[in-house]
Simulated assay, not measured.
Amino acid sequence: MSDAHSKSRKQAEIAFGATQSQFFARGRAVDELNSIAQARDEKTIRLREARLAKELDDSMKPAVIPTKRAKKS
Results as ranks from 00 to 15, higher is better:
9 R>A: 11
63 A>L: 14
27 G>D: 13
68 K>Q: 08
61 K>Q: 15
59 S>K: 09
54 K>G: 04
26 R>I: 04
54 K>T: 07
36 I>W: 08
48 R>F: 00
45 I>P: 02
37 A>E: 10
62 P>H: 00
61 K>A: 13
49 E>W: 05
26 R>Y: 11
72 K>Q: 03
43 K>I: 00
27 G>M: 09
61 K>H: 12
6 S>F: 02
56 L>V: 00
13 E>R: 14
27 G>W: 07
28 R>C: 04
63 A>F: 14
5 H>W: 04
66 P>N: 06
53 A>Y: 03
24 F>P: 02
67 T>C: 05
10 K>N: 15
44 T>D: 10
34 N>A: 07
35 S>I: 01
69 R>S: 10
7 K>G: 03
14 I>Q: 14
3 D>F: 06
64 V>E: 09
28 R>Q: 09
58 D>I: 02
14 I>D: 15
57 D>K: 13
45 I>W: 06
47 L>Q: 05
32 E>Y: 02
44 T>R: 11
20 Q>T: 07
3 D>W: 01
55 E>G: 05
46 R>C: 01
67 T>Q: 07
56 L>Y: 03
59 S>Y: 10
51 R>Y: 14
47 L>V: 00
3 D>G: 03
65 I>H: 08
42 E>M: 08
3 D>I: 00
14 I>H: 14
62 P>R: 00
26 R>D: 07
10 K>G: 13
30 V>E: 13
50 A>Y: 08
47 L>H: 01
65 I>T: 09
64 V>I: 06
28 R>A: 09
60 M>V: 01
73 S>E: 13
6 S>Q: 09
6 S>L: 11
66 P>K: 11
46 R>A: 02
56 L>R: 05
5 H>S: 08
63 A>D: 11
38 Q>D: 07
1 M>H: 11
62 P>Q: 00
28 R>M: 10
12 A>R: 15
70 A>L: 15
31 D>N: 04
44 T>C: 12
9 R>H: 11
26 R>C: 07
64 V>L: 08
38 Q>M: 07
51 R>P: 04
70 A>T: 10
46 R>K: 05
3 D>M: 02
50 A>G: 03
42 E>W: 05
2 S>D: 12
51 R>W: 07
54 K>V: 01
71 K>P: 03
27 G>F: 11
5 H>A: 05
19 T>H: 12
68 K>E: 09
45 I>H: 05
50 A>V: 02
2 S>E: 10
29 A>S: 07
25 A>D: 13
42 E>F: 12
40 R>F: 11
22 Q>L: 11
67 T>E: 10
50 A>Q: 14
7 K>Q: 09
63 A>M: 12
43 K>C: 01
60 M>I: 02
17 G>H: 15
23 F>P: 03
60 M>A: 14
28 R>W: 06
56 L>C: 02
62 P>I: 00
72 K>W: 05
66 P>E: 10
51 R>V: 07
65 I>S: 09
16 F>Y: 14
16 F>E: 14
46 R>L: 03
50 A>P: 06
23 F>G: 06
26 R>E: 11
39 A>K: 04
51 R>A: 12
33 L>S: 02
12 A>V: 14
66 P>M: 06
61 K>E: 13
37 A>Y: 12
15 A>S: 13
23 F>Y: 13
39 A>V: 02
60 M>L: 15
72 K>C: 02
